[in-house]
C-alpha cells in the first residue's frame, strides 16, 4: 500500500507538544534527576577510586555519555509507553484519523515528537554538566543536532515495539533486552577498549555507541573526521528503520 505522508504529520507533533507544555514541569523532574543521580553516584562516588581514564577524571568521562543516554531514554519511552497510552487508552489516534490526517502521518508525527524529546532532555543535561564545569569545548553547541540523530533511531525502535506489543506490560522486554544493555555497553561507563574484540564489534551495531562517541568528542573538543562516520551510521540506520513502524502500526490500526 502507498505511504500517505505530508506536512500534516507536524500537526501530530504539535498536538503532543501542546500537551507537553501543560505537563512538562512534572515530567521533566524524572528525566532530569535520573542522570544527575548517575553523575553523583558513579562520577563522584565511584570516580573517587578511579585514577583517570584517557587523561581525564572519571566524572568528565562519564558526563557526556549521560547526555546520550538521557536522549535515548526520552525518545524510547515516549514512543513506547506514552504512544501506547494515546493509542490504546486515550484513543487519540482514532480521533486524529477521523480528520484528513492519515495513520502514517500520526505515526510519523509521534516519532518526530520522540525526536524532540531527545533534543530537549539531551540539551538540558548538556546545560547541567556545563554548569558543573564538565564541558571543555564550544563544539558542544553541536550536540542538539546530534540529539536529532539519537532521537530518530530510538523513536523508530520504540514505535516498532508499539506496533507489535499485545499489552502495555510487554514493553519491559524492550527495555530489559534492548535499551538497558545498550545503556550499559555503549561506552558510557567505561571505554570499550577494555572488552574483548567480539564485544567491541557488536557495539558497533548499537546506535547508542555512535551517539556516545559523538557527544564525548564534542564535549571534549576532540573533533576529527571519524565523527562524520558515526553521524552517517546513525542516518543510515534511521533511514532503514523509518518505514517498519509505519507498516506495523498501520497493520495494527487499520483492519
Amino acid at each position: 500500500m502507498k505511504i500517505a505522508l505530508s506536512y500534516r504529520l507536524f500537526k501530530v507533533f504539535w498536538r503532543d507538544f501542546v500537551v507537553f507544555r501543560k505537563t512538562w514541569l512534572t515530567n521533566i523532574m524524572f528525566n532530569f534527576l535520573e542522570p544527575l543521580f548517575y553523575l553523583a553516584a558513579m562520577g563522584y562516588g565511584l570516580g573517587y577510586y578511579i585514577p583517570s581514564i584517557k587523561g581525564m577524571s572519571y566524572l568528565e568521562f562519564l558526563a557526556p555519555g549521560l547526555i546520550a543516554s538521557s536522549a535515548m531514554w526520552a525518545a524510547a519511552s515516549e514512543c513506547t509507553y506514552d504512544s501506547f497510552v494515546r493509542m490504546r487508552f486515550q484513543k487519540t489516534y482514532h480521533a486524529i484519523i477521523a480528520t484528513p490526517l492519515s495513520v502514517d502521518e500520526v505515526v510519523a508525527g509521534e516519532m518526530v515528537f520522540g525526536v524532540f524529546k531527545s533534543v530537549f532532555y539531551g540539551s538540558i543535561i548538556l546545560l547541567v554538566i556545563s554548569i558543573l564545569g564538565l564541558v571543555r569545548s564550544p563544539w558542544a553547541l553541536l550536540i542538539p543536532f546530534v540529539m536529532i540523530l539519537c532521537g530518530l533511531p530510538f523513536a523508530e525502535l520504540g514505535m516498532i515495539w508499539t506496533g507489535l506489543v499485545p499489552k502495555i506490560d510487554t514493553f519491559s522486554y524492550f527495555f530489559t533486552l534492548i535499551i538497558t544493555p545498550m545503556f550499559l555497553f555503549s561506552g558510557i561507563f567505561f571505554p570499550l577498549d577494555s572488552l574483548p574484540a567480539v564485544v567491541q564489534k557488536i557495539a558497533f551495531f548499537l546506535p547508542l555507541y555512535h551517539v556516545v562517541e559523538l557527544t564525548r568528542a564534542l564535549v571534549l573538543g576532540q573533533v576529527n573526521w571519524n565523527l562524520l562516520g558515526h553521524a552517517l551510521w546513525l542516518l543510515v540506520f534511521s533511514a532503514i528503520f523509518f518505514y517498519p513502524p509505519l507498516i506495523l502500526m498501520r497493520r495494527r490500526l487499520v483492519y
Binding site: 498536538r15 501543560k22 486515550q90 487519540t92 477521523a98 480528520t99
Partner: peptide, 27 residues
Amino acid sequence: GVVPQEDNLDPELTVRENLLLYASYFD
C-alpha cells in the same frame, strides 16, 4: 464529522483547546 462510540478527547487539555486543536487538523 465523526462522533465515536468511546470518547477520545484530549483529557489534559481544556474544552476550548480541544476544539482549537481539532480545528488545526482540518487546516
